[in-house]
Design a protein around this nucleic acid. Structure first.
Length: 297
DNA sequence: CGAATGACCTGTGAGC
DNA sequence: TGCTCACAGGTCATTC
């Protein structure tokens, strides 16, 4: 499910409960997700303390007191939920509740929280494309999964000049270039479609056409950089997007799905003032792209 | 080298 | 109602 805004929403949910928490018990309910769990998965976590919950692109990074980092990915359908044992000022709408469990709860961490309470964080992942593995914190950035990642599409890091360097000479369609995690890290299918609509750019346009021969960004590229930052910021603000039944860690739905301008709106009218076009669906790199062929050029 | 395709999984909704 | 098919937020390995 999750693109950067959803992963960031998960991180913000887990952080207050997990940071400073000691892991009392680890329940690993199957041998593998996308990859096999490390052989010593439960041993390394049990008794350890979580010092920070960070994010890089769509990866969650659980920093541990003994110098390890647990690198975790939610794949397409992964989610975490928090359950508190007792009433507590910490976030988490659920209390321990057997009836909430299901066959796709693969990992359960029981925590002694920094606030002195007890909580469980439960990882659920029907399709099992997610994973968890360990790296030494000191060298985690050099881990093969993280080393090649591009710029974060948040804040000021991503600007038109940066995009111009990344796109110069590229024949790939904008859709493919924006999905490439080696260029920009964290965009996925939804937010690429949304950003391209906002920037009035066709997903089929070649990325290199947004860069001047001098290497300077065009006005179109300025628009695109602004659109990416805006859509990501707004989606994080809204708690991400909830497709199907995906929830935040406290069970709340995200809201951004109500603000989609093109994603999953095939056949519906373009929302742009005065456009009058109809949203269409095409397939690029084997994935659905949604666009308005009338105003995205 | 870059770009397309298949693979990994289960669940859901549309259409018959 | 029940069946089949297409498709789903991601990424990696393989093949042109």
């Amino acid at each position: 499910m999750p693109e950067l805004p959803e992963v960031e929403t998960v991180r913000r949910g887990l952080q207050p409960v997990m940071e400073g928490a000691r892991i009392l018990a680890v329940e690993q309910r199957r041998a593998d997700l996308r990859f096999p769990f490390p052989a010593d998965f439960t041993e390394r976590l049990t008794g350890n303390t979580v010092t920070a919950v960070e994010r890089r692109a769509k990866y969650l990074l659980f920093r541990l007191a003994d110098g390890l980092t647990m690198i975790a990915h939610l794949g397409m359908s992964g989610s975490w939920r928090i359950e508190m044992r007792d009433d507590s000022e910490l976030p988490g709408r659920f209390h321990y509740d057997k009836s909430r469990e299901n066959a796709h709860d693969h990992v359960v961490l029981t925590l002694a929280t920094a606030a002195g309470g007890e909580a469980r964080t439960v990882y659920n992942d029907p399709r099992r494309f997610g994973f968890m593995l360990f790296a030494d914190t000191a060298t985690a950035n050099a881990h093969p999964l993280l080393a090649g990642l591009g710029v974060e599409p948040t804040g000021n890091a991503l600007g038109a000049e940066m995009l111009a360097r990344l796109f110069a000479g590229k024949a790939a369609p904008l859709k493919a270039a924006l999905l490439d995690q080696k260029l920009i890290a964290g965009l996925g299918n939804i937010y690429v479609c949304e950003a391209l609509w906002r920037a009035k750019l066709s997903p089929r346009r070649k990325a290199g056409t947004l860069v001047r021969a001098s290497g300077a960004p065009t006005a179109r590229l300025e628009r695109l950089a602004g659109a990416i930052r805006a859509v990501i910021a707004e989606a994080i603000e809204a708690g991400g997007s909830s497709l199907r039944d995906h929830r935040q860690t406290n069970g709340e739905l995200g809201y951004f799905q109500h603000r989609f301008d093109v994603y999953d709106r095939e056949g519906e009218p373009c929302r742009r003032e005065g456009c009058g076009g109809t949203v269409m669906r095409i397939v690029q790199s084997g994935r659905s792209t949604f666009l308005c062929p009338r105003c995205q050029l």
